[in-house]
Write a protein that binds this DNA or RNA. Structure first.
Lengths: 177, 177
DNA sequence: TCATATATGTCAACGTGGCTGACCTGAAAC
DNA sequence: GTTTCAGGTCAGCCACGTTGACATATATGA
């Protein structure tokens, strides 16, 4: 069953600890998103809408295909969500100047408001966990999670992400595929 | 907008860092579960089946309601999943001796095999991330995630969980509700 | 200039896995 | 022994993923 050999691994790689880590991730994620779901349901929105709002807010003028690569869903799924958000006046979609096939997405004031309202809960929740755990633990948290991210996306969370943060409209890890 | 005041918070609690943490969690979880989904779809099972298999394997003779509290889904949702697993001969359900209403669940050899096959991928993935990050980072990872878990469940991941691990059939955080 | 290949986005139909509501069954209480 | 209740099931619905077929826009080449 490809079991880990206890004698050849540090303590934290034991079967039991790995299982515990998996459960921790499961429970933490479950509760983290549940935080937002309450607010979302009051707005008549789902989790999928929130994810779209979030990333559009974070990357103004993002195109649909860039958003697709971030979310890793099919364009058909995303299309429905964007249709909803557009119908409710939460996002704007303007065709690109260079390539008029592309629609560039942005939040309306209303969309911004909803996004903040929902995300604020999660941010507060994470902030509390960060504060309780301390700066050093936060570093470890980020280190391990970064290691779990597969492939290209990991680069976005490399050490030099400060530079990225100062260019808010860009999507370095996405535009370059 | 209830923004965090930069002057009164340590650096790692800045808006930008919290957003990055949220995204990290999103991407890491997304890729972590995607790992298992490939294997699952080959077995004709879904994510819900895996979660049930996992926790039944980890807590033999668990009752349906205990499982419900772990997974936080409705009994109707779980019932369908258990029906599938039972029909495919992956779990056994025997009525309790003391209270014959309760069904105690356990994995069959076939169920154990499938569970291992799926979970093994995830365990390997987490082990790699742990190894890359180092023991200290793993401690921080667990600390922050534990802080994200709401309410009662957090206790299960307290310092004395070693004691729990030596009593594999028990569910201290669950039975006591 | 028009035929076509490619990229992008949409429409229709379907599957998984959540949910609520109504109901059944065994155990316990009066 | 009827009632009450916890544990579990059946039926139907919804959110949000999927695939397949199609529409539109740009780029390419005769």
């Amino acid at each position: 069953m490809a079991d880990l050999k206890p004698g050849f691994n540090p303590l934290f790689l034991r079967e039991e600890d790995l299982r515990e880590g998996m459960e921790l991730l499961f429970f933490a994620y479950r509760d983290f998103v549940a935080e937002a779901d309450q607010v979302l349901s009051r707005c008549g929105l789902g989790r999928a809408h929130h994810r779209a709002l979030y990333f559009i807010g974070r990357h103004p003028d993002i195109t649909v295909s860039e958003l697709l690569r971030l979310l890793r869903v099919t364009k058909q799924s995303l299309s429905r969500v964007l249709g909803d958000l557009s119908a409710q006046g939460m996002i704007t979609q303007k065709p690109g100047l260079r390539d008029r096939r592309r629609r560039h997405l942005a939040l309306t004031p209303k969309g911004t408001e909803i996004e903040h309202e929902v995300t604020e809960r999660q941010r507060a929740s994470l902030a509390r966990a960060y504060r309780q755990a301390g700066a050093e633990a936060v570093g470890g948290f980020r280190k391990v999670l970064t290691g779990l991210i597969g492939g290209d996306e990991r680069k976005r969370f490399a050490a030099d992400r400060i530079a990225e943060a100062s260019r808010p409209g860009r999507l370095p890890g996405v535009a370059g595929r």
